[in-house]
Amino acid sequence: MVDLGLLMETDWPAEARKATEGRGANLVIDMVGGGALTGNLQSLAISGRLVTVGRLGGSSDTLDIGMLAFKRARLIGVTFRSRSLEDKAAIARSFATDVLPHVIEGRLMPRIDRIFPLSAASAAQALVQRNEHFGKVLLAIR
């Protein structure tokens, strides 16, 4: 498993290619947005897919259309805001079926920045608003 935190501190496109024996990733899910597009394309395999989800780095970037064409890549933007309730429910069911088992088995592990007690929810929210975290900020309810 590749530590994504480590990749962000290094030449992560090169590390991604190294981890895939030079092929590049078939799928890159971008949770950052602005500032990550070029590196994401560099780490992508020929005919790979780049799905943009997050916008923490901003909502705009510069696209090298030559690299996009060379990679024959598919660039896909997603959001939940414009989806119907039925779409959201279907996505949640698919996540439970297709992704959650990998998390439970330890094959997919989210990067956790910090865990706050529920009584410190406002401090957790302030941390996220200041964009001073890398990974998920969790609330412990026990």
Rank of each mutant, 00 (worst) to 15 (best):
M1D: 13
D3T: 05
G5Y: 07
L6G: 15
L7H: 11
T10I: 06
P13C: 05
E15F: 02
E15R: 06
A16I: 15
A19F: 01
A19C: 02
A19W: 08
A19E: 01
T20I: 02
G22H: 09
R23G: 10
R23P: 06
G24M: 02
N26P: 00
N26D: 15
L27E: 04
L27P: 01
V28L: 11
D30F: 00
M31C: 11
M31G: 11
V32K: 08
V32I: 14
V32M: 05
G34D: 05
T38P: 00
S43P: 03
L44K: 09
L44N: 05
S47A: 13
R49E: 04
R49P: 05
L50P: 05
V51C: 08
T52K: 03
G54M: 06
G54Y: 02
R55I: 12
D61M: 04
T62Q: 10
L63G: 01
L63V: 06
I65C: 09
G66N: 15
M67Q: 14
M67E: 13
L68I: 06
A69M: 12
K71C: 09
A73W: 04
L75I: 14
L75T: 10
V78L: 05
R83P: 00
L85P: 14
K88G: 08
K88I: 05
K88N: 05
A89S: 14
S94H: 06
S94C: 11
F95M: 11
T97G: 04
T97A: 15
V99N: 02
V99Y: 10
L100Q: 11
L100V: 00
H102A: 13
I104G: 03
E105I: 02
E105F: 02
L108A: 12
L108G: 07
M109V: 15
I112P: 01
R114C: 10
I115V: 15
P117Y: 08
S119D: 12
A120N: 13
A120H: 12
A121N: 08
S122M: 12
A123N: 09
A124T: 09
A126D: 14
A126H: 07
L127S: 09
L127E: 03
V128N: 01
V128F: 03
Q129C: 03
R130I: 01
R130D: 02
N131G: 13
E132D: 14
H133F: 11
F134M: 14
F134W: 12
K136M: 10
L139W: 01
L139I: 10
L139Y: 05
A140E: 08
I141T: 15
